[in-house]
Structures are given as C-alpha cells and as structure tokens.
Design a protein around this nucleic acid. Structure first.
Length: 297
DNA sequence: TATTTAACCTGGACGC
DNA sequence: TGCGTCCAGGTTAAAT
C-alpha cells in the first residue's frame, strides 16, 4: 500500500519523467477518479490541457504537480492521492491500456504519457490552488491539503511539537501515528514496523508515554521510512509500483507486518495479529507489552 | 472539543 | 464450477 516511501518513489519518477513537459490532452475514463474536482471531469481535462508541469512535490501521501502560471493571476497544481491501489505510470503512447486505466494525460512532445491506474478507486486527482503553508508562508501547498501535517522526513518537521501533541492524547499511539493531521506519511505497515522497533504496543495511550519513549518512536519511524525508501518501497502485490511499473523490495525487510505466527526476529515469540481501527495490527506480545488496563481504543 | 466509527470500493482468496 | 463471504486500508463525514 502506498505510504511515504512508495509515494516518494513515485514523486521522484514524476520529477524525472514529467516535470518540464506541457500537457496536450487529458482523457478521464472513470469520473470517480476526479470526484474531488468538483467542477467535473470535463473541466479537469479542459483546464489542464496546454499547461506546463513545473515540478513534482509531495507531503505525506499526497503528490502535486505545480503548473506554470499562464496569466500571473494565481498558481495552480494537479493534486494526486494514490489511495490504496492507485498508480501513476509513465508509459509509451502505443503501449496497451491497463485494465483499470482511469485518466490519461498526453504531452505536446509526443513522448511517454502519464496514466492514472486504480483498481479500488480510493485514489484520485484534482486541480487545486497553491496557497502559503500555514506554518511557513514562503512555502506553497495545495489548499486542499494545507491541514495535512509535515512528514517525519521533512526538514521543517517540528520534533518538540510532535512530542507535546502526542503525549497530550488520550488515545492509542497507533491511532496517533495514522492521524495525518499530527504526522503524515505513515500508514498501517510502517506504523506497526516503527512500534515494533520502538518496543511499544500500539494501544498504549499517548498520555502514558514518557518524553524519551515518544522521541525514540519518532527516531524509529524515521529509520524505517528511510530504509524502505532506499529499497523503493514495499510491494505486496502488483498494486504498488513506481512510474515504470517496477515493484519495491522492502517487504523482505518487514519485521512484524504480515508475519502472524512467525517468530519475532528479536526474541522468537510468535507474532500476533489483532483487529484495530477496522484493520490488522501485528505485534510481538513479548517485546511490545499491551497496556495493563486495555480500554476501547 | 476530542475522539471514534462507518462508509467508500474492487478483486483475490477461501470455504462450501 | 459457481456462489457467497471475508479481507485489504487511507480518508473523511458523521456520530459519540
């Protein structure tokens, strides 16, 4: 599933293959993929045609492509989110269509086209206005994602603020890791991996954690995200690939996620799986002691 | 206000 | 073979 390392891998590919090129034509074949563009698919296609893509940017799991400003009035961008199964592929124009191809963007140079492919259609694209970031006005972010927190690999990420906000929460620490308005880019896989590395059970409440535990958890989050990024991300199936259709290979480095019943790589205890927030949580019952008085998370 | 839950969506795996 | 059920999970509106 695309979390920060996977999305950053895609962003890097977009920067290489798409930045600097001018859009010729946009064809939306599945309107749900542009549902967040409230003016509709035709408006999305018409407004994007003829504009030059300047760069490829990312915050957390969101991508955006800043567009050259045609008249100087305002700055716009294409915002994209991969959801659970979205792919942004850079393909030769004559290659066959993917089964779940929903948006096709062709370029004025006649070269490789950009395709948005999405089996489960949780992802999507939209046009949006760039506005000054609330915490750093010199930086521009899409208006629709200005509420998304910075991610742990962002040089401007505020470690002290993270520590205070997490330790104020009367809520499970895993829930906090998945809250994109607190820290972005982390999904179910890397939340479980970072908690295992930190020796913390995901149902521990923020209020009960020490300052050093929270600082240590952030360090583990950074480590696992950085290592996965170096491996091109995690691909369980064909649903996550980079812009050239290649899988990442971090799956083999996962310590708990998807390893139910297998021995913990630290102590040998069988990894357990439990339901949490309508999804699965994997943990080592020895290394990650559950809270003594479990409350409804 | 802070926190939690449900809904959205598709296709693969599995049991009968 | 075919059918029904479960599962995967990021985001957000609605509920508590």
């Amino acid at each position: 599933m695309p979390e920060l390392p996977e999305v950053e891998t895609v962003r890097d590919g977009l920067a290489r293959w798409v930045a600097g090129r001018t859009v010729a034509r946009v064809k939306v074949t599945h309107p749900r993929s542009v549902r967040r563009h409230l003016a509709g698919a035709d408006d999305f296609a018409a407004r994007l045609a003829g504009l030059r893509i300047e760069a490829a940017s990312r915050r957390g799991k969101y991508l955006w492509l800043p567009l050259a400003d045609p008249d100087g009035s305002r700055r716009e961008c294409v915002v994209a989110h991969l959801g659970m199964s979205g792919q942004l592929l850079v393909q030769p124009p004559d290659s066959s269509d993917e089964k779940h191809l929903h948006v096709r963007i062709t370029f004025a140079d006649g070269g490789r086209e950009l395709r948005f492919v999405d089996q489960r259609t949780f992802g999507g694209m939209m046009l949006d206005e760039l506005v000054p970031a609330p915490d750093r006005p010199i930086e521009l972010v899409p208006r629709s994602i200005a509420h998304i927190a910075r991610d742990p690999l962002d040089p401007v990420f505020d470690d002290a603020l993270w520590n205070v906000r997490l330790r104020r929460r009367d809520s499970a620490v895993k829930r906090a890791l998945l809250d994109q308005s607190l820290v972005s880019g982390i999904g179910n896989i890397y939340a479980d991996e970072a908690l295992w590395r930190a020796g913390l059970h995901g149902e521990r409440r923020g209020l009960t954690l020490t300052r050093s535990a929270v600082t240590g958890l952030l360090a583990e989050v950074r480590d696992v995200l950085t290592e996965s990024l170096g491996a091109g991300g995690t691909s369980f199936d064909a649903l996550y690939v980079n812009v050239n259709g290649q899988s990442g290979y971090f799956e083999r480095s996962l310590n708990v996620y998807g390893r139910e019943g297998k021995p913990c790589r630290r102590c040998g205890t069988a990894i357990r799986r439990s339901a949490f927030m309508n999804r699965s949580s994997y943990f080592c019952p020895s290394c990650q002691r559950p809270p003594r008085v479990p409350r409804n998370p």
